[in-house]
Each structure stands twice: as C-alpha cells, then as structure tokens.
Simulated assay, not measured.
Amino acid sequence: MPLKLSLKPNEKIVLNGAVVQNGDRRTTLLLQNKASVLREKDIMQLEEANTPVRRIYLPIMLMYLQGHETPEQYNEFALRMTEFMSVVHSPAILEECVNISREVMTGEYYKALSRCRKLMEYEAERLNMEGIEHVAPSVPEGAAASRNAA
C-alpha cells in the first residue's frame, strides 16, 4: 500500500536522507515502497535537543533517517532513556518509555518517534508546571552529521 503525502507550499521533508522541498503549490506524493520520511515539523536540529525527552528523540531520529543504529546513537538513546526513567514516577509514562525502548530494539524507529512526541507533551506540561527552564543540550556523538539535515 503506497504512502500518500500531502505537502504544503514550500514544506520540506527528509526522504531517505535527502532534503526535498515542495514548490509554491500544494502537492501530493505517493511513495510506492518503504522509505524513511520525516516532515519538517518532526525534524529536530541538534540545538533543539534541550530537554530530557528531546535528548531521547534526537538519537532515535538519527537511527530512523539512517535506517539503522550505530553503537554511539544507541548508547546515547539508552543513557538518556535511563536518566529519564529514573526520575519519572508515573506508571503510564514509564510504560511508554518501555514501549519506546522495545521499538528501538526492534528497529521500529518511526513508531518510537511517534511515542516520543507524546512524551514531549507530557514533559512540556511538567516543565511548565514546575517552572523549570530548558537546559542547554549535551551533544550526542555522531549527531553532528544531521545538524544541517533540513
């Protein structure tokens, strides 16, 4: 079954590692085979990985775009997920973390990214409630290559 993408004017996507930008009109693309696709709104730049969940998202995104994981990316993901889970007390959020970890281990990176975006919503609520400011990112190894992806 093909994947149908409707692109807004000038919207960017990453398609199998290539940045593709739509023209000045709305366009629909049909992808006939499996491909790694991220919309511009889902692409995270290195400097945007400035919260615990965003630091989890970034290495997963890199694994997804590359189609596989490197030891550095997986180690960064595992470290950040362990740190996050050590301070979370909500059973539902911990379950989501386990699901994300399971999906990363089985190479289902896109599903893991989708779950991670839900965690970002939870995190944003918690950070706003506690008045915590976003902190400067620590840079995962191997992440610099994606810095200018979009």
Rank of each mutant, 00 (worst) to 15 (best):
V37S: 07
D42R: 07
N99K: 15
E123W: 03
K34E: 06
E69Q: 15
Q21N: 12
L30K: 13
A35Y: 02
S114W: 05
G67S: 14
V98H: 12
R117K: 09
I13T: 00
L79H: 12
L113Q: 02
V53W: 03
E125F: 07
E11F: 05
A18K: 13
G131W: 02
C97A: 15
V14P: 00
Q66W: 15
H134G: 01
K8Q: 06
M1R: 04
P140L: 03
N50D: 13
R54L: 13
A150Q: 00
L5E: 01
P137I: 04
M44W: 07
K12G: 04
G107H: 14
S90V: 10
R126G: 00
K4H: 04
T82W: 11
I43P: 02
G107K: 15
H89M: 06
V53P: 02
N99G: 13
Y122E: 03
Y110D: 06
V88H: 09
N128F: 05
D42W: 04
V135I: 07
M63Q: 14
Q32A: 10
I43H: 05
L46G: 03
H89L: 07
A136W: 00
E40R: 04
P59G: 09
Y109F: 15
N33Y: 07
V87A: 08
P59H: 11
E125I: 09
N50L: 05
Y109M: 13
L15E: 03
